[in-house]
């Protein structure tokens, strides 16, 4: 039987080299960031050995940069650290709320946005929130770095677009403009320590008159992957985000959902609740955007 092994490279190049070396040998390798999903999977049914490549010692995966045009969040930064950055919370409240919803305080101390994304669970909380704010994924591999819109990154239940030898370095996010804001809501039976039964991320940009000129709406836990719902965004754009617009967007989300019945919820329940979440999250994003007189540059 192949042994487990643990390596902790200290640069992107080293990490890529490690991944390439083990890929060539046919080893099963897995990138370790916070480990809050991976270690549970290793304790469970999937106990086959693997090489763990810990990317937490790579400087770039720990880099947090709030630029004038762009925000960069390293893939290995724990959610708790992100939520302790007041400016980031102010800029992207929805995304940070989504990050804050991943598990307990303990889990927050480890879990990362990058890990939540790579784990590619249909119910991953940050994925719809990332889609809503237009995250671009920075990927490193043998051929250098490439970028990919987050909505293309997750390709199926538990499957992402990374190729052998690649890993996620970080996330690029356009810095929100004035009168723009995001929100994320999810539904769980308990207040904490639960997996989303449905989730919805929304970002809106208002013009000077309070009309919605840009919107992105994404839903989670109601399809094999989190999905962007252009019809919901279209229902919002050009409106004052009044009740009628919110109801139309909600209906678009319910229509776009293709949920399953499982231990966490039924098809009917998920379809209905994802619309409720869209309505409520959009109202929150709207109120935030209205409250934001001038933001950024």
């Amino acid at each position: 039987m192949e042994a487990f092994a643990y390596v902790a490279p200290s640069s992107i190049d080293e990490a890529v080299a490690e991944l390439a070396r083990h890929a060539k040998k046919g080893h099963r390798t897995q990138v370790l960031a916070g480990g809050t999903d991976l270690l549970v999977q290793m304790r469970g049914a999937d106990i086959e050995p693997r090489i763990l490549v810990d990317i937490k010692n790579v400087a770039e995966t720990n880099r947090l940069h709030l630029g004038n045009n762009e925000i960069f969040i390293g893939a290995a930064i724990p959610s708790a650290v992100l939520n302790e950055n007041a400016e980031l919370v102010e800029l992207l409240p929805g995304l940070l709320e989504a990050a804050d919803l991943i598990g307990s305080t303990q889990i927050q101390g480890r879990a990362t946005l990058g890990g939540n994304l790579c784990n590619a669970s249909p119910a991953g909380d940050t994925i719809p929130a990332m889609i809503a704010v237009g995250v671009s994924c920075v990927i490193a591999g043998g051929k250098g770095q490439r970028e990919m819109p987050v909505e293309k990154f997750v390709v199926g239940v538990g499957r992402n677009a990374l190729e052998a030898g690649e890993f996620l370095v970080g996330l690029k996010i356009p810095r929100p403009k004035s009168r723009a804001a995001d929100a994320y809501l999810r539904f769980t039976p308990r207040t904490e320590m639960d997996i989303a039964v449905a989730g919805c991320g929304v970002s809106v940009t208002l013009d000077a008159k309070g009309l919605c000129k840009e919107a992105r709406v994404a839903i989670g836990a109601v399809a094999p992957t989190a999905i962007l719902v252009p019809a919901a965004a279209n229902a919002l754009i050009g409106t004052t985000l009044d009740d009628a617009a919110l109801a139309a967007a909600a209906a678009a989300c319910s229509d776009a959902a293709s949920p399953i019945t499982d231990k966490r919820g039924t098809i009917d329940f998920r379809r209905k609740v994802v619309g409720v979440l869209c309505r409520r999250a959009t109202a929150i994003a709207r109120d935030r955007a209205l409250a934001r007189k001038v933001l950024g540059v």
Binding site: P189, E192, M193
Partner: peptide, 28 residues
């Protein structure tokens, strides 16, 4: 409110863990 054994058609419990066997947490 939330706790229950959920079985599939083969008689396998589907929520055999604290994540999905939902006991109250402090904030509940």
């Amino acid at each position: 409110l939330n706790e229950e054994y959920i079985y599939n058609a083969d008689g396998i419990m589907e929520n055999a863990g604290f994540l999905d066997y939902r006991m109250p947490v402090a904030s509940d």
